[in-house]
């Protein structure tokens, strides 16, 4: 099945009296690398959680093909989730498990493969990411970059149609940051998946993205290709381009 285009329409979300998203509309392009950027506190992570069904929007719609996440039943969202992967900012690996157990977990939990097949698939994916030798190691012993690789392997093992990255380079040194950039490209190339990256790393955004959406105060300032961003006269966009990294 081809990865769907995700249509976000007029999404709002508030927490108490604070309105975080104020009518966000954007299209996530199928099979492409989509970046959502903005300063801290502009609603990027909330939007990511809405895209993955962790939060429901107060109003508006998030359409994966025919399925509107805003109104879908939990069972329907869970069915969709089996086709998506999410790489959390800190990896969110299960620290009571080994690397292999973490990667195999989605297959094991949903009975998607026999143990031998699951092990082989996990070893193959870990091998592509240079992590196969850590298969039986506790994840607590891994470095930050290694944890991100294992988390990506866990996200990719279900052959996802959509892979989400939550601020993947935040807190990493430049070398690790470039390794994570490679992981993003790897995820898109290997599985032909739709990739959604929430980030404020502009260098990565301009070099990797097929489509960029800039959020400011819970609204979309501009959504387009990196070239459209470079040519935009909008002050926010110009600031973004000249600022190195949005903080």
């Amino acid at each position: 099945m081809a990865a769907p285009t995700i249509e976000v329409r007029e999404v709002t979300k508030s927490f108490g009296t604070a309105q975080v998203l104020k009518g966000v509309s954007l299209d996530i392009l199928a099979g492409k690398i989509n970046f959502i950027i903005g300063r801290s506190g502009e609603g990027k992570s909330v939007l990511l959680k809405i895209l993955t069904g962790l939060y429901r929007p107060d109003s508006g719609s998030v359409n994966y093909g025919q399925l509107n996440l805003a109104k879908a039943k939990t069972r329907e969202i869970n069915k969709l989730r089996r086709r998506m992967g999410l790489l959390f900012q800190e990896g969110a690996l299960f620290d009571s498990m080994t690397v292999g157990e973490n990667v195999i977990f989605p297959l094991w939990f949903h009975n998607l493969a026999k143990p031998a097949e699951a092990n082989k698939k996990a070893l193959d994916i870990l091998g592509e990411l240079g992590m196969a030798r850590y298969f039986n190691l506790s994840v607590a012993l891994l470095s930050t970059g290694e944890k991100k690789r294992v988390a990506l392997a866990r996200a990719l093992i279900v052959d996802p149609e959509v892979v989400f990255f939550d601020e993947p380079t935040t807190g990493l040194d430049p070398l690790l940051g470039s390794q994570v950039d490679e992981l993003i490209v790897h995820a898109q190339k290997v599985s032909q998946a739709t990739v959604v990256v929430v980030s404020h790393d502009m260098a990565a955004t301009l070099s990797l993205a097929d489509r960029v959406t800039l959020l400011r105060l819970g609204q979309v300032v501009l959504s387009g290709s990196p070239d459209q961003f470079r040519k935009s006269p909008d002050r926010e966009v110009v600031n973004f381009l000249s600022g190195g990294e949005l903080a």
């Binding site: 959680k49 989730r81 998506m84 992967g85 999410l86 959390f88 969110a92 989605p106 949903h110």
Partner: peptide, 8 residues
């Protein structure tokens, strides 16, 4: 959240 996203 990771469990939820994996439909677990």
């Amino acid at each position: 959240d990771a469990l939820t996203v994996m439909a677990a």
